[in-house]
Design a protein around this nucleic acid. Structure first.
Lengths: 207, 207
DNA sequence: TAGATTGTTAATCGATTAACAATC
DNA sequence: TAGATTGTTAATCGATTAACAATC
């Protein structure tokens, strides 16, 4: 249970190496080199070798790294296989999309249910996952050992809903609304997914 | 048309300042200070002042910045109001969610249509937006002046689809699939939205 | 061998934070 | 005034890149 903790940037890069390795595996390639990986991500090849060394993976001179082995090492290091239980707060379009987004499951995100305050939605099922009333959240979190709340409510109510969610016993809040949440309790980790900022950064030098 | 170009990190922060300003406006507050903004984002308050100075916004001693004015200045600097035409490639769950995600429109993303190769989907409409066959992409891109392709296809085909999309005249590809795209044409900007990496970075020190 | 690659240290670069005078 | 804040420069920190010996 005492795994090595990597810094955030390293984790994000390792995840992308894993994506690349998956495509190499699909193509039936046995080896991959650090310059090859670095070209996908526009980073230096020495960065790639450093990151990989953190996993205690070894490469082979002239060949590079074994695709299957490196892929497995990343999976172990980032514990893809360890299930992390989550619920979605807000059964709108985005919540509905995420519940059906099977790729997340492969990386350890185990979404158990949705929560919504709309009485017309409560009791319905979305691809085997039930929609519950918000009033049952705390009970569900403790009985099902839920650690992550994925927030997909309208922007206007995101802070208010987050304040409520923060009292439920959750460990992390993954915020998909265009807002920056402020949570008093510093034991709760907040990830403000800034899709709009990423988008604006992409287009800023093009328009 | 010759706007100042900000670096990517600055743009992402300014976008989040805008989110915070929106909530201040909702609450009817007239002023906001740099330490207040910095607490939302766990950054230094001098960073906030520097970013704001880039916009040529001025603050007031003892009070901070005028909420409405600063908000407007960010909007102008990042050209939220300038429409950027886009299409979604892949009319699955995520594509469907994004087409209905109205917040994006407020920040200048103007999604015109969806494209999919499934004959059962082609011709259908999703909230006023038509689903076209992929074979019509290049024609649509040039006639409608589309500059952004949002990729929401299955991971297995993402590179192959991206290669095809790259020939259509598009300027940017916003990749939502768990893959890292490699596009030869360096005039095309690729944004690999790394949701899974962000998620793994959030939970890594908690599990 | 020649050439390509790893592993690793040193150098550089850029981003963030600290500090503080000026101001109201 | 005292206290809070801006604006800005200098210092620090950390991340990235350069360089190269060792290796196959």
């Amino acid at each position: 249970m005492k795994e090595k903790i990597f810094n955030e940037k390293t984790i994000k890069r390792l995840t992308q190496y894993h994506f690349i390795l998956e495509s190499y595996e699909d193509k039936g390639l046995e080896y991959i080199s650090s310059p090859q990986i670095s070209k996908y991500l526009n980073i230096d090849d020495s960065q790639v070798r450093k990151d990989i060394k953190l996993l205690n993976s070894d490469g082979l001179q002239k060949k590079g790294y074994k695709v299957k082995e490196l892929k497995k090492n990343i999976e172990t290091a980032l514990s893809f296989k360890k299930n992390k239980n989550a619920v979605i707060i807000g059964a709108g379009n985005l919540g509905t999309a995420l519940i059906k987004y099977k790729d997340l499951k492969n990386y350890g995100l185990n979404i158990l249910a949705l929560f919504d305050n709309n009485p017309l939605k409560v009791g319905m099922k979305l691809s085997t996952k039930e929609i519950f009333s918000m009033s049952h959240l705390a009970e569900f979190v403790s009985s099902q050992k839920v650690e992550i709340a994925i927030l997909t409510v309208p922007r206007e109510v995101s802070q208010e809903v987050a304040d409520f969610v923060a009292t439920s016993g959750i460990k992390c809040i993954w915020n998909f609304t265009p807002s920056v949440l402020y949570i008093e309790d510093k034991n709760i980790k907040v990830l403000n997914e800034n899709l709009i900022g990423n988008f604006l950064a992409m287009v800023n030098d093009r328009f």
